[in-house]
Design a protein around this nucleic acid. Structure first.
Length: 275
DNA sequence: ACGAGGTCCTGCGAGC
DNA sequence: TGCTCGCAGGACCTCG
């Protein structure tokens, strides 16, 4: 499930293949993934446009066109973006295909189609990005800013971490991992996190997310990089998916537990060392 | 203002 | 073996 490191990996993979290339044509094969734009309007908008930049904001891929508009792709659970040579086998899960002037084919595929694709004017993009919280890997994201994002919440700290208005890009896997690293109980009220704990969590988040980017993301099931491969970080996970296994800090003394008490999501934690 | 729960969607694995 | 069913869950929604 693409979170920040996965979307960043996809962006880095497709960037050199897209920037400077023109879309010759685009076809929307599964129109229900489009938001706020019709199939025909989307296809017309892409035709002839040159890609000026490819980036990431939170868990969204952002393709900046030469007319200032942006194609914003939110892969959610099972979305992936891939550039291939043309003439390959038909992908039954392809939602959008766009032919490139370089001879390549850009495909957005999404098995469950929970993803969303927007076409945004500069003004609409400003409104869109303003609703998302700070980027945790930006240099100006300090422990104080993290503490501020958590300060007003009676909700569980894990849920606060995953709230995209408070903090950008963290989903279920990395929220579990960051809280284990910071030795914090996921069910703690967000506002109960002290300044010192926020510093621990801040450090945990930054090292975790940058480490996961270096390993090209975490593939549990569906996630693929921009070159169609699995990520490499799944073998490094400390808690996610490790229910019943010994805690990597406590050893045999404590085993990883799983609960669905927080927002009905799978929460993995060590009862021995997370408080 | 908050939490709880529903919704979208399809593949997969557990269980009978 | 073949079927049903629940689960995976990010973001958004409504309801109380």
């Amino acid at each position: 499930m693409p979170e920040l490191p996965e979307v960043e990996t996809i962006a880095r993979d497709v960037r050199p293949l897209l920037e400077g290339a023109a879309f010759q044509s685009a076809r929307v094969l599964k129109p229900d993934i489009l938001r706020g734009v019709t199939r025909s309007a989307f296809e017309r908008a892409l035709a002839g446009r040159v890609v000026r930049a490819v980036g990431r904001r939170a868990k969204h891929l952002v393709i900046l066109l030469d007319d200032g508009r942006r194609v914003v792709i939110q892969p959610r659970m099972t979305g992936s973006l891939l550039v291939t040579r043309r003439g390959g086998r038909r992908d039954p899960y392809a939602a959008i295909e766009a032919r490139l002037s370089t001879g390549g084919l850009l495909t957005y595929r999404d098995v469950r189609r929970l993803g969303a694709v927007h076409l945004l004017t500069p003004r609409a993009w400003e409104r869109y990005t303003a609703r998302i919280g700070p980027e945790p890997l930006e240099p100006d994201f300090t422990a104080q800013r993290l503490a501020a994002a958590l300060a007003d919440g009676t909700l569980a700290v894990k849920k606060a971490l995953m709230d995209q208005r408070r903090l950008a890009g963290v989903g279920n896997i990395y929220a579990n991992e960051a809280l284990w690293r910071a030795r914090l109980d996921p069910s703690r009220a967000a506002r109960s996190i002290t300044a010192g704990e926020a510093r621990r969590l801040h450090r945990a988040l930054r090292t975790l997310l940058s480490g996961a980017i270096r390993r090209r993301g975490t593939t549990v099931r569906d996630y693929r990089t921009g070159t169609g491969e699995a990520g490499e970080y799944q073998s490094r996970l400390d808690v996610y998916g490790r229910a019943g296994l010994p805690c990597r800090r406590c050893g045999e003394a404590h085993r990883i537990a799983v609960t669905h008490a927080i927002d009905a999501r799978a929460t993995y934690f060590c009862p021995g060392c997370q408080h």
